[in-house]
Amino acid sequence: MSILIIKNADKFYGKNHVVKSLNLEVDDSEFLTILGPSGCGKTTTLRMIAGFETPDKGSIILKGEDITYLPPYKRHVNTVFQNYALFPNMNVSENIAFGLQQQKKDKATVDKKVTEMLAMVRMSNFAKRKPAELSGGQQQRVAIARAVANNPAILLLDEPLGALDLKLRKQMQFELKSLQQQLNYTFIYVTHDQEEALTMSDRIAVMNEGVIDQLGTPEEIYNSPSTEFVAGFIGDINKLSGKVTAQNELVCNGQNIIANTKNIPNGKEAKIFLRPENIFITQSNNGIPGKILQTVFAGTHTKLEIQLSDGNIVHINEPVNSERRYTHGDSIHLEVKQHTAIIFE
């Protein structure tokens, strides 16, 4: 069942068309990520759901109720802000209590809920601290507790991990995911970090230039991207060119590749998108010939930059423990795993 429906929403900033007739249905209790580069309209979409922006056209329906023109303080959704936006004049407890007090809850209820929330985010020992006295990760937890305290129908998260360092970010990803499962809430999460999106989401909506290019599970998005933009934006990818020779058969640098050619007619040029993990160096001479341009040590693997005979460049990851070591100038042959190439016209 859809908890939130966005119907044909349009948003202009002056002449800038930032959200273009956007349609989105969010399922109850799912972790949905809106992923896209900066300026793609993802934050605007989130702000329209929160009520900080009003769409110029279209409507937003929460649990069957049209909330398009409702002010933010009357909406049953809450936001975890990018830089947390904790009230610096209030301590942790007061921050968490703020929303409950606006609902005119009695003191006992507020206190009970605050205690519960503090325990949930493991901040009970910091109840009387001011936000400025907390670390980034702790501020993050308070921001989540403050938003969750109101029991929102949907929790909106606007790049909440952006300000944290890499290690903490990874840890918080897991915490957020388990919190969502534990609470069984609907999360709408906005980020430009594709790795974050892949690890946490039930579904991902990839946005580009005001439009949702693809909506699907992380696997669908990664393995069968529906547009070139999605293919290029998520994960590492190599772009090659070839020609369709038969149904599900292409030729690239003189070698046959088996892949879904969709409806591309025979004899037509095609773009071949290949993930690095689907290309291997083969010891046989049956493969796409290439030359090693550069090798870069990257810990668990070595990154190889290879130039193919048609001039295209390919990056692949070679396990460090592989028997052969390659150096600049080596001639090699590449093999492509069947049915893994993504073909666009």
Binding site: P72, A85, F98
Partner: peptide, 22 residues
């Protein structure tokens, strides 16, 4: 920061409460 004012509204505070408390 404008986000503090938005956060207050997000948590259900009207303009007057936002002024008084934030």
């Amino acid at each position: 920061p404008k986000s503090l004012i938005e956060a207050a509204k997000d948590l259900g505070a009207g303009s007057f409460t936002t002024f008084r408390k934030i």
